[in-house]
Nucleic acid binder design. Structure first.
Length: 470
RNA sequence: GGCGGCGUAGCCAAGUGGUAAGGCACGGGCCUGCAAAGCCCUGAUCACCGGUUCGAAUCCGGUCGCCGCCUCCA
């Protein structure tokens, strides 16, 4: 079976297609990674959550998945087509750190975010700065193929030599001319031509620059993905993921470089792009006090996994609205699901495969249809709240589903186990209990109200009263 | 100017021809000394107009609104 019935939307063809990997049981997956001269925000994180869901699903289908996620730690420019200030240089100048220090710091933050969100480790997590030689090598292949030309500030790829240039994103190069930058790099034959190698400006010492056959400088910023993909996955890959914004320029250029450089087509079988998070027109910024990063979220008391749950509630190819109410809803939903799962952990005995099969089928079918997570989540709740399934079956199903969902249902602590302990408050709670036992409800309620005013909620359980901060 | 997406109950959202999944909130109920927590129940004809069809949220045309990309960007 394996690939049978799996369909994924392919950006290149603008429709769903049966998933067919190059090798029957193996998937070569490349996911565009973070730029590490600044923190990533929750919109960015949607991209890794998406590729992680994809990877988990493929694994659950029996595929051996090799995933590469690159770390872009080499100069992207601040603005403008092929000029402007280098973001890494800018960040370094602002903080007084070296490029390496900045890259290391933000790479670590990114990894922590991913870990908190339950994302599986990629098999390879290469850094662009450590693959300069590979990038130069690809540049040389392109040069040998006659695809490049040299102008004052660098070596450029001539897109007119690649007939399929507009294919991936359905571009209309002529139609775009009206908007092409008036301050584009002088000498470029076409506005869409892009840099393979940029020369270091004479007399300007950059933090990041290397020698190359074309002179000292640094690689064009699309080159790294092609160079690292071929190194770790080979000349053809099965799935390439990234945010939808990358399709029209970054990925389009990657295709041009790779197909011309490696002499392959299609370089990527399935292009999968996730849509953006929509913040309702409200720009997310710290100055506005809006939630922007995962740590902003956790700082407000949200479980990082609640954001993963939030992500799973919408299809990856739809813009998803993010706002406080929606995040609260996800947080509550996640906590309740965890509570159910935790209660089922204690259940003994085997479940019935025959009983579980239809549910697994529905769950699997939802994801096999272009990764329809919302539909899969509906099955999850059917199981979680079923009054016909046995506890053992519900336990088995939820754990099986979670292999794909990644919500940590096997271990996450339910709210009921998060109660705290503090001498003073424990004392007050005990005092209230004593009052209740003596039918002195006025005193009991007064104590409860006082604690409530402190943001402390009392929960009476069969095992006695517990409390937690709200 | 070019390309693309979206508009389904208060909120997040599935659903692409046959009479609207799921989650959250609200309201009601159970439980509780009263609450909280938990559990149960409850709500929409699908932006608007016109068309195709036995039948449309789902296809076609138009209108209004929102968003993204074309420039580093998930």
């Amino acid at each position: 079976m394996g690939s049978s019935g799996i369909v994924f939307y392919n950006t290149r063809r603008k429709k769903k297609e049966p998933f067919r990997p190059i090798e029957p049981r193996r998937v070569r997956l490349y996911s565009c990674g973070p730029t590490v001269y600044g923190p990533v925000h929750i919109g960015n994180l949607r991209s890794w959550l998406f590729s992680d869901l994809l990877k988990r699903f493929l694994i659950s289908e029996g595929f051996s998945v090799t995933q590469v996620i690159n770390i872009t730690d080499v100069g992207h420019l601040v603005s403008d087509g092929d000029e402007g200030e280098d973001k890494m240089e800018l960040a370094a100048r602002r903080s007084g750190e070296s490029a390496e220090e900045i890259a290391a710091r933000y790479t670590e933050l990114w990894r922590q975010d991913r870990a908190a969100l339950g994302c599986l480790e990629p098999e390879h997590n290469p850094r662009a700065s450590e693959h300069i030689a590979e990038q130069i090598e690809l540049g040389q292949k392109l040069e040998a193929g006659g695809y490049l030309y040299r102008i004052e500030d660098g070596i450029y790829f001539d897109v007119s030599l690649f007939p399929r240039y507009t294919e991936l994103a359905g571009l209309d190069l002529e139609g775009q001319r009206d908007v092409q930058r008036i301050d584009a790099v002088k000498g470029k034959r076409h506005p869409a031509d892009f840099a393979i190698w940029k020369f270091a400006e004479p007399g300007v010492k950059r933090l990041q620059e290397w020698d190359s056959p074309w002179g000292r400088g640094f690689p064009g910023w699309h080159l790294e993905c092609s160079a690292m993909a071929v190194k770790y996955l080979g000349e053809k890959i099965d799935i390439h993921t990234g945010g939808i914004d990358l399709a029209s320029v970054h990925h389009t250029n990657e295709v041009a470089q790779s197909e011309c450089g490696f002499g392959v087509h299609p370089w990527v079988r399935h292009w999968m792009h996730n849509e953006f998070l929509d913040f309702g027109g409200e720009k997310m910024s710290k100055s506005k006090g809006n939630v922007r990063t995962l740590s902003d979220l956790t700082g407000r008391g949200y479980d990082p996994m609640a954001f993963r749950y939030f992500f799973l509630q919408a299809h990856y190819r739809q813009q998803q609205n993010f706002n406080a109410e929606a995040m609260d809803a996800a947080d509550t939903g996640y906590r309740r699901l965890v509570a159910v799962a935790a209660e089922l952990r204690g259940v003994e005995g085997p479940g019935s495969e025959a009983v579980q099969a239809p549910f697994k089928q529905r769950f699997r079918a939802a994801l096999a249809d272009d990764l329809n997570a919302p539909r899969a989540m509906a099955v999850v709740w059917d199981v979680a709240r079923s009054d016909t399934l046995s506890p053992a079956d519900r336990r088995d199903l939820l754990l099986a589903f979670d292999e794909v969902l990644g919500l940590d249902l096997a271990h996450a602590k339910p709210p009921a186990q998060e109660y705290e302990s503090d001498p003073r408050i424990d004392g007050l709670v005990a005092e209230r209990q004593a009052a209740r036992a003596g039918k002195d409800f006025a005193t009991a309620d007064r104590i409860r109200d006082e604690l409530d005013a402190e943001g402390i909620g009392i929960v009476d359980t069969p095992e006695g009263p517990r409390w937690r901060r709200k």
